Amino acid sequence: MRFKTLACAALAATTFAAPTSEPKKAKFSWNKTKSLIAFGDSYTFVQGLLGHPNYTYIGDNFSLSFTPQQLFSNRIVQNQTSTASGGPVWTEFITNCGVKPGHTDPRKCEKQLWDFAYAGSNTDEVLTPLHWNHTVSLEKQIEQFEKYGDVALQKILKRKEALVALWIGINDINDLAKLRDKNASFASLYEQVVTSQERLWERVYKLGYRNLLLLNLPPLDRGPSPSVNKTLVSTYNGILASHATAFQKNHTDATVLQFDVNTVLNQVFDDAADHGFTNTTNFCPGYNQPDILTNPEKYGCGKGLDTYLWYNSGHLTSRVHEVFSKVLARWLGEQGR
């Protein structure tokens, strides 16, 4: 049952997200992809030895710069607190890079993972304020990559063999709901947010990257304490899809992949029991305790975090990331055929 339903969800994602460019352009191949370069927020961030603790792989808003030597000496950290999900997240799962506990050198992975996402990030600092003074917005992440990341990675990688992934908007939509009046015209605000994102896609394109992966908003309306409803999530996702389709039309030598993670995750939520999830509405109160993985009963968490959809009030568990990542990896493998 669970494989059949997720296959249907994946088909929906493919229908929503198939590239719409000219047939003559170069086709994307996940099998030939050598690196994943990721940007975004806490759903995407991974911890690095040279990153701000609990927020990023390398650097922060106080120090965006790094040398190639620093980037290459850095390591992905995998432990209970190295992501916002209590374990590996989707970027690590689809690349199989940094999944195992301990430290991982991205250069030794078959698909190298270079993750510049920052936990708590919004698109920019215009519509919503930074969560903390050390936060690196998506705009600043791209700036950091332009000045330091791309320069370093070109010593070991080719742009044509990279997939650039961006998953952003969760903090934007939640913060706007809290900052603005409930009768605000959110569609116009979302239009401004996504327009800012499109300008950042353009900057990535101008660097020479031609493979772009965009993920829409997850079902935030189904969280333990949602700030937004299904209509707002759907409105944002519709605007994102419209801009992504237009960007693809105007950049026919690129491949813009839109993955409908919202549809896939809604299917996971609907069929939670089939995937081994027994708690779909709340999160384990001891999720951040050092012995939660070995003694979940101590905190009234039954058979452990893997039975929960939600890790805390705003983040999915690592197990959920693993489930939808399998769909994403399979879907990526089907693109360009």
Rank of each mutant, 00 (worst) to 15 (best):
I142N: 04
E143G: 07
E143R: 13
Q144G: 11
F145R: 14
E146L: 12
K147L: 13
K147M: 06
Y148E: 05
Y148A: 10
D150R: 04
D150Q: 04
D150Y: 04
V151W: 01
A152K: 00
A152D: 00
A152E: 00
A152W: 00
L153A: 03
K155F: 07
I156G: 10
R159I: 12
R159S: 08
K160Y: 13
E161Q: 14
E161L: 15
A162M: 10
A162R: 07
L163H: 14
L163Q: 14
L163K: 13
V164F: 14
V164R: 07
V164W: 04
A165F: 12
A165D: 12
A165Q: 13
A165I: 10
L166T: 11
W167K: 11
G169V: 00
I170F: 06
N171M: 08
N171S: 13
N174C: 12
N174E: 14
A177N: 09
K178W: 01
K178N: 10
R180C: 01
R180F: 07
R180H: 00
K182S: 04
N183M: 09
N183A: 14
N183L: 05
A184L: 12
S185C: 07
S188Q: 13
L189W: 05
L189K: 14
L189D: 06
Y190W: 15
V193S: 05
V194I: 04
T195Y: 08
Q197F: 06
E198T: 09
E198C: 06
E198N: 08
R199F: 02
R199N: 12
L200E: 14
W201N: 10
E202H: 15
E202C: 15
R203T: 12
R203M: 11
V204T: 10
V204G: 09
Y205I: 13
K206D: 13
L207G: 08
L207M: 06
Y209K: 03
R210I: 02
N211H: 14
N211P: 00
L213C: 12
N216T: 09
N216G: 06
P219F: 15
P219A: 11
L220N: 10
D221S: 15
R222F: 14
R222P: 11
G223N: 13
P224Y: 06
P226L: 02
P226S: 02
P226E: 03
V228I: 01
V228Y: 02
N229I: 07
K230L: 03
K230R: 07
K230M: 03
T231W: 08
L232G: 05
V233Y: 04
S234M: 13
T235W: 01
Y236R: 05
G238E: 00
G238H: 07
G238P: 04
L240P: 03
A241Q: 09
A241N: 07
A241H: 10
A244S: 10
F247Y: 09
F247L: 07
Q248N: 11
K249Y: 14
H251I: 01
H251K: 04
T252W: 08
T252P: 02
T252H: 03
A254K: 02
T255Y: 00
V256W: 00
V256Y: 03
Q258F: 11
D260C: 08
V261W: 11
N262D: 12
T263Q: 08
T263L: 07
N266G: 00
